[in-house]
Each structure stands twice: as C-alpha cells, then as structure tokens.
Write a protein that binds this DNA or RNA. Structure first.
Lengths: 210, 210
DNA sequence: TGACAATGTGACCACGTGGTCATATAATAT
DNA sequence: ATATTATATGACCACGTGGTCACATTGTCA
C-alpha cells in the first residue's frame, strides 16, 4: 500500500499520479512500464515517487486494486437483479455490462487486459492476493443455480463451460480494445450486441443443424 | 532474413543459436527479450550476432517463421484426411493435433502463445507479413464446407463462431503451457481429451436442457 | 522568531539494453 | 610465402532503467 504521505496529497495531485500510472500500466506490462514516465507525466520528482510508494510493485498493486474495485462497483447493480433472470439473460447482461464497462472506462478495461497477459509472477500473485478471482466463482455460482433450476443440460462439464466463458470474455475484451471503443457509435454498438447474441445462441443451442 | 554468414555456419553452431533464440523469445516479448542473453547462451560474441543478423527484429522474424513452418508441416497430415470427416471430427482432430503439437514441441507452442500477446506493432506486422493468418482462413473454409453439407445450423453467425474457436484455441494453448506439458502422463492426457470433448459437445449441442 | 518535522527535489548510482567498430584470427587463393 | 578475403571478438557507446540520498523547501507548532 502507498505510504501515508501519498494520501495526504491534495486530491488533484494524487489523481494525476493515479491517472499517469494507469496510462503507463495499461500501455506496458509490469517490467516494461516506466516509473520515470509516470513521474514525468504527473510532474513529480523521482524522489517524491519513492516517498509515496515503496517501489514499482507497490504502485502496481494499488492501481490494479483500484481498477478491480471500480469494476466490482460497476457490476454490483447488475448482480442485484440476477435472481429474476434466466441464465441466458444473466450472461447477456454480464457481457453487455462488460462491454459498457469497457466503453465507459477504457483505461480500466485496458488494465485488466494487460494484467491477464502479465508475465511477472511476483506482480501477478501480488495483485491476485490483493483480491481477485471473483469472476470465476461468480460464473460457478451462476451455473450451479441454473443447474438447480433445470436450465442447463446436466451432462455439461461445468469446468469446460467456465473455460469457454473465460476465454470468450477475454476475446470480447480484446476486441473492444483493439477497435477503438471511444469512437463507438450506434451502428457499432448494434453490431456488437448482435455478435454477443450470436455467441450466446451458439453456447445455449449449439451449432448443429436441428 | 539472416545474412549468408549465418547459413555458412556449421550446423551445430547454427542450431545452438536458433535454440537459444527460441528459448529467449518464448520467455519474453520482443522488447524484453535480450540479445545479450541469446549470445551468452549460444556462446557467440555480440559482434558475431550482428554479423549474422541485421538486428533483433531480423532474428525474431526468422525464428517465428521457423515455428510457423514447423506447425504447418505438423498439421498437413491431418488436413489431408479432412474430406472424409464430419465437422465435429475435424475440429476434434484439430484440437487434439494442437495438443499433441504443444506436447511434442512445447517451445514452438510457447513461441506462438508469446506472439499472440505481442505488443510491439512493428514486430507483429513483420511476422505476419512473413506468412501467417492461415488458421483463420482454415476455420472459415471448414465452416463453409460444413454449411454446404448441411452439418451446421444456417443461422449460425460464422464470424461469432470463428471468434469463439480462436479464443478457445488460445485458451487451450495457455492451459497446456501453464500445466507443464512435459510431465504429461496418461492420466492427464485422458483428462485433456475429456475437456476437449466437453467443449466440443457444448459448441455443437449447446448447454440448454433438452 | 526559532525549532523541528514533513515533504519535495534531481543529481547520481549500478546495471542492462541494442548496436558499433577497430582489431585479431582463420581460411583461401595466388 | 604472400596477399586477400571472410569471420570472430569484446571493449565501448549512448541510452533508459529502478532506486538512493544529501540537501532544499515548506508547514507546524511553541
């Protein structure tokens, strides 16, 4: 965690540092990301940086925990009405919410995508320890519930299903990031929703001719 | 392409350089990968390296094209008998062949996985220009054929389907790399085949209760 | 005002990087 | 044996890195 000095900073300055760090960590992986660049971009001296944070990892974990928190807050509304929805609707909501999140917070989404590719094991485990892994358990819970309600075939391997969902989630994320999400328009949006529906249709009904 | 000097090298030495480069490029992305390390590991001087290759990118593209070539050669047998198989069997063969490839050539598989995460645009486009993109077009062809044969629902969006297959392929790859493929045993193998079958079953029949 | 603590600063360090080049060695041809 | 060409070498360069530290500046009490 950042030192007290950092939290004593005027809000503007603190946010500037956070924003610069997010830009940097969404641009490059942990090793490549540059403390010097973060300092330059937020107009603080190198020495100040190391007064706020013990080291680069300290900042990295902090930034990631901020992003995770934001995402959880963003999804919590959707999760509230989950009980009233079918599994199909639940996943549809989850995907569309995910797309909305990526559109509204492209920086956070880029951070997540960057993290999923992170090589540095110490950085990875430090972030995970700081609180993650909730998406997998959420998926698992959804599947269990749907099973009880008799919505899905009992022969489906839940692990395979989760593997499929996770890889899809990452693919959609990447797609959103590569096709500049900021210039998204109604036409793009329509198209994206169509793809999501197509995907979900495949997942629920399969591709076999009836 | 490497200079003539490189191809004049005795085979042992040349292979040592190639092997060292593959190790390095499978370990780290283009920017992080170290020419110094490659030199050390293959017992050649820095100066020699730059007599063999114009720069790091030159070596990178060469190594990747070797890996791509190896993979194509490996798959060509499977592709030959494609006409006699159903789409399900085709994909099953493709996945199992992919797993076999990753098991037999973990270094090549790691290179591919590393490349799929590559950030450096110049490195990426240089490799692609050197001949890639065949997997996507292969998938597309398979789907078209199956459509004609009436094996898949005509309402399936081929693009969504390909997105799904590509993300799955990458997920399986990653899974194989993380769970040390070298110590694979019959038990693991059995389990992997089961997961692949589960995945394909979902894709073909969907998860909905019948 | 003076004393003391908190915070800001950037020159500096050791290190690793990709790439260069003058020089040494080996191989070949005359 | 001599001249010429191909190859091997590692010290060296400029640069960017994460991190340190002696010192300057500011804020806060008495």
């Amino acid at each position: 965690m950042p030192r007290e000095t950092f939290f004593n900073l005027p809000e503007d300055k603190r946010n500037l540092v956070i924003s610069a760090a997010m830009q940097e960590f969404s641009r490059a992986d942990f090793k490549t990301a540059s403390v010097n660049q973060i300092c330059k971009r937020s107009n603080i001296a190198k020495g100040s940086f190391y007064q706020y944070f013990t080291d680069k990892l300290d900042l990295y974990v902090y930034i990631m925990s901020l992003a995770i928190g934001e995402k959880i807050r963003f999804f919590s509304d959707a999760l509230a009405e989950f009980n009233t929805l079918t599994l199909f609707e639940q996943f549809r909501l989850l995907f569309t919410k995910g797309m909305e999140f990526a559109r509204m917070h492209p920086l956070y989404a880029a951070l997540g995508e960057q993290f999923s590719k992170e090589h540095d094991e110490s950085a990875k485990s430090a972030v995970i320890k700081a609180g993650n892994n909730q998406s997998e358990s959420l998926f698992m819970q959804m599947i269990q519930n749907a099973r009880i309600k008799g919505e899905i075939d009992s022969e489906i391997d839940p692990l395979a299903f989760i593997l499929l969902l996770k890889s899809l989630n990452s693919a959609v994320n990447e797609y959103m990031l590569n096709n500049d999400v900021n210039v998204i328009n109604e036409h793009n949006q329509e198209e994206l929703f169509k793809i999501v529906d197509s995907l979900l249709k495949i997942i629920f009904n399969g591709i076999s001719a009836k």
